[in-house]
Design a binder for these strands. Structure first.
Lengths: 142, 142
DNA sequence: AAAAAATATTTGTATATACAAATAAAACCC
DNA sequence: GGGTTTTATTTGTATATACAAATATTTTTT
């Protein structure tokens, strides 16, 4: 059944979740080359781009809770892609050399994902939709 | 930080997930009166509306996997809101009297949610967005 | 400077969701 | 009608995420 044929297709809760799950699937596919899940990959890129970034800033950028960020970092540490250095109450997160070497692959995955979904969706249309989704998400910042 | 200010706000993966999480939060709030999570509530309404509906049909309506549906049903069974009757390879899911009595409260929650988010978002705007999200989700049915 | 408040992060626990494999029944085919 | 394939569901296991409480440090106040 198509999303638009479901009984609840007019409910934004349902639609937003269904869409997010489908996009996530596509993203997972695109990030397989780097052997990372999309959220791990985005976190890693933020860390590479801004070495020493703190969990709070990562949470803010990724719109996830600090505890979720801690969990993501733990996994990336196990994979030897980031290290944490605690200084007083703050924690600094750094990419390892192994992570830095991966950067080109990471960028390839970004591109792959963008191409995959703009092929299916259309560039203009998706750009427009993303803007609208952001606008709405901004309004929902309670 | 606003969603639209994040470094990844132009990535549909990021936007769709951020939006879905925010809407989910609002929905959780609206469904507290019924002491149910949004997905449990929607499943229950489908079961009340169509007594005997099968997990496969629920999965299709809710755009979730059959295994997720099984898990949701298990919880609802523990709460004595549905019962499963297996007949051969199919399973029929029925609402209990306790569930049927809840119907008015469930509808109240639906209304509460609609009002809560259309107050924040605006009716026309959200309607439009929902349609676009569905259209996109349909295209992503791989 | 000691006490109180604020801040940053982690930890314990819980939820929703999915994939892959297992199970079981039904339908098909020769 | 017996073997094979398909279909429906469940189960085992894993992931992402969050909330609330705990911890630890810094800042503010008095």
């Amino acid at each position: 059944m198509k999303t638009s044929e479901s009984k609840y297709c007019s409910c934004i809760y349902f639609s937003a979740n269904a869409l997010a799950r489908k996009i996530e699937k596509l993203a997972i596919e695109s990030w397989k080359k780097a052997n990372l899940s999309p959220s791990h990959a985005y976190l890693l890129m933020l860390v590479i781009e801004d070495a020493g970034i703190q969990p709070g800033a990562l949470a803010s950028q990724m719109q996830l809770t600090p505890s979720t960020i801690t969990r993501l970092i733990e996994k990336m540490e196990k994979k030897k892609l980031v290290v944490r250095i605690m200084e007083g109450k703050v924690t600094n997160v750094y990419p390892t050399p192994k992570a830095k070497v991966m950067l080109p692959i990471l960028k390839e995955c970004v591109n792959h994902f963008f191409e995959a979904y703009s092929k299916i969706v259309g560039k203009d249309e998706s750009l427009h939709l993303v803007q609208n989704m952001n606008k709405l998400a901004d309004k929902l910042t309670l």
